[in-house]
């Protein structure tokens, strides 16, 4: 394994013109504009290995997309450096741009009146892909995305799902070794999200590409990325395994159990010496919150004391974890 992307002290400050309401202020700002400095990204450093799939997570406006744009070369940083595949991205050297691809869920590259094949062919020429390589890549894409029957269709006649598939194909045609995905599943229904995730995982597996992803849908990140970078208020607050983040934020397990007959109350739990908190009850189904270190003893006690029909123990759902970080603003 080798380092593919290394960012060091990445900082981006925007200057935003400000003026008070009213005509006088508008005229004054013509002559002496005032600016506010907004730090979108502050001193972010990390290293990503070749073939890794990494997710950027964080609330809206945290700086995820700004960071991604600096990595792809769309934005100059105010300070700091990035080495991606041996290049400085914002110099936008042809060699670098030929190695990467960026897919933005809210933007389209398809040409409305041209067929999918013709658009792919234009991309072949733009990226300077030789004809024999093009043939091979196209065959692989058809295999990966089940694209063959869409090729002769005009883009404007495609359904939403087919369109996103083709957008993905355009991004992958030159087989980039780094894939930046900015909200790739935006606006898709659940089935489509699942399919696209499958394609991303498969692309990563087959070609050993490095994938960096931002998404609002936590399930995108949980299902694809072993490692996450949590950005909040422009700063990198966590870099590591998703599971570990979960542990840090919520040191609880959720125990669900269905009882045969008996009643279970918080008082009873306390009197039996079970370290658990009853959080929900529906008929004879109960939900308990148990500290991680107490989980084993608590489960043992519950099993021995009650007639249990159904029992499960799990981590709290990721959405709840993320919500806790976003609302509390950091890792406390």
């Amino acid at each position: 394994m080798s380092v593919h992307i290394a960012a060091d002290g990445l900082t981006k400050t925007y200057r935003v013109p400000v003026r008070e309401a009213g005509l006088g202020a508008a005229v004054r700002s013509l002559f002496r504009p005032r600016f506010d400095e907004v730090q979108a990204v502050r001193d972010v450093s990390f290293q990503i290995e070749r073939g890794e799939m990494v997710g950027f997570i964080g609330p809206n406006g945290a700086g995820k997309t700004t960071t991604l744009k600096m990595l792809s070369g769309l934005l100059y940083p105010t300070s700091g450096s990035v080495d991606a595949a041996g290049h400085t991205p914002w110099k936008r050297k042809t060699q670098y741009l030929s190695k990467i691809s960026m897919l933005m869920g809210n933007r389209s590259q398809l040409q409305w009146n041209n067929t999918v094949y013709d658009t792919l062919y234009i991309f072949k020429e733009i990226y300077g892909v030789p004809s024999d390589v093009f043939k091979r890549h196209l065959a692989e894409l058809c295999d990966l995305l089940d694209l063959a029957k869409l090729l002769p269709k005009r883009s404007r006649n495609l359904s939403l799902g087919e369109r996103s598939k083709c957008e993905f194909a355009l991004a992958l045609l030159h087989q980039p070794e780094i894939l930046y995905l900015d909200e790739p599943t935006l606006g898709m229904d659940v089935t489509m999200q699942l399919r696209l995730r499958e394609y991303i995982r498969e692309y990563n597996r087959r070609f050993g590409a490095t994938v960096i992803l931002t998404s609002h849908y936590m399930s995108d990140v949980t299902s694809l990325c072993g490692r996450v970078l949590l950005i909040n208020g422009g700063e990198l607050v966590y870099d590591g395994k998703l599971a570990k983040l979960q542990e840090m934020i919520t040191p609880f397990k959720i125990v669900k159990l269905t009882l045969d007959q008996a009643e279970l109350t918080q008082e009873e739990l306390v009197s039996q010496g079970i370290e658990a908190e009853l959080t929900e009850r529906k008929d004879n189904e109960y939900m308990l919150r148990v500290k991680k270190q107490d989980a084993v003893t608590a489960s043992g006690l519950l099993m021995s004391l009650y007639n249990i029909v159904d029992f499960s123990i799990a981590d709290p759902p990721m959405e709840a974890v993320i919500d806790k970080i976003y609302t509390e603003g950091g890792l406390g």
């Binding site: 769309l74 936008r92 670098y96 741009l97 990467i100 960026m102 933007r107 590259q109 733009i126 990226y127």
Partner: peptide, 18 residues
């Protein structure tokens, strides 16, 4: 206007020519 220029900027050739 649409912001699609992001994609153009990432094409590996002379932008003015393109």
């Amino acid at each position: 206007e649409t912001g699609n220029f992001d994609y153009t900027l990432l094409k590996p050739l002379s932008k003015q020519y393109y």
